[in-house]
C-alpha cells in the first residue's frame, strides 16, 4: 500500500476531526505536500456539502403545520389521561364499596378541567401556530423558525391552478 493509499484511508476521518493527534498531524503534513491527496480532500468536502444541500433543498418546503397535524393525530389516537381516569372509574363501578366515588371524582375532575386552564395540555407555546391555510389557486408554504419565533405564510402564484378555479367573489364583511 502506497503512502497516498494509506493517507486516503484516513482522509475522511481527518476532515471529521476524528483522528488521534499524531495521525492527524501525519495526514495534515502529507496533504500539504501531495497534490493528489489534497484534491481527494476537496472531493470529500464537496461530497458532504452537496449531500447536505441536496437534502436541505428537498425538505425546505416541508411545512410544519401539516407535519405536526400528523404527529398530533397519532398522539390523539391514544387515550388521554382524563379518559384513562374515567375508564378507571368505570371499572370502579363494578365494586360496590367504591361506587360512590364515581360522582365525586367526576365533579372534581370537571371542576379542575374547567377552571385550571394553563396547565398540562394547555400550556401555551411562545410561537405562532397556523391552524388552517387555504390558498385560493396559490401554492402556500409555511416556514417556521423557532430561534426567532418566526412564522411565515408564503404565497406562490400558480397560474395553472388559478385558471382552473373560477373567481370566487367574497363580501369583505362576510364572516369566514
Amino acid at each position: 500500500m502506497s503512502d497516498c493509499d494509506r493517507i486516503q484511508e484516513w482522509l475522511g476521518a481527518w476532515l471529521d476531526g476524528e483522528l488521534p493527534q499524531a495521525r492527524s498531524a501525519e495526514v495534515k503534513l502529507h496533504v500539504e505536500k501531495c497534490a493528489a491527496c489534497a484534491a481527494e480532500k476537496v472531493r470529500i468536502q464537496r461530497l458532504d456539502a452537496a449531500l447536505k444541500r441536496a437534502l436541505e433543498a428537498r425538505v425546505s418546503d416541508a411545512a410544519f403545520a401539516p407535519f405536526w397535524a400528523g404527529v398530533r393525530e397519532r398522539i390523539a389516537q391514544e387515550k388521554s389521561p382524563r379518559q384513562r381516569v374515567f375508564d378507571w372509574m368505570r371499572r370502579g363501578v363494578a365494586f360496590p364499596r367504591i361506587a360512590w366515588g364515581v360522582p365525586v371524582a367526576a365533579v372534581v375532575l370537571i371542576a379542575l378541567f374547567s377552571t385550571i386552564r394553563p396547565s398540562g395540555w394547555f400550556v401555551p407555546s411562545n410561537q405562532a401556530s397556523v391552524e388552517s391555510i387555504d390558498g385560493h389557486g396559490f401554492n402556500v408554504a409555511l416556514l417556521r423558525e423557532a430561534k426567532t419565533k418566526t412564522t411565515v405564510i408564503w404565497l406562490f402564484e400558480n397560474q395553472e391552478t388559478e385558471d382552473e378555479n373560477p373567481v370566487e367573489p367574497a363580501a369583505s364583511e362576510q364572516a369566514f
Binding site: F64, F67, W68, V71, R72, I75, G120, W121, F122, V123, P124, S125, N126, Q127, S129, R144, A146
Partner: peptide
C-alpha cells in the same frame, strides 16, 4: 405539555 413538544418538534 404537548405545546412544549410542538416547539421541540418545530
Amino acid at each position: 405539555d404537548s405545546a412544549a413538544y410542538e416547539e421541540l418538534t418545530a
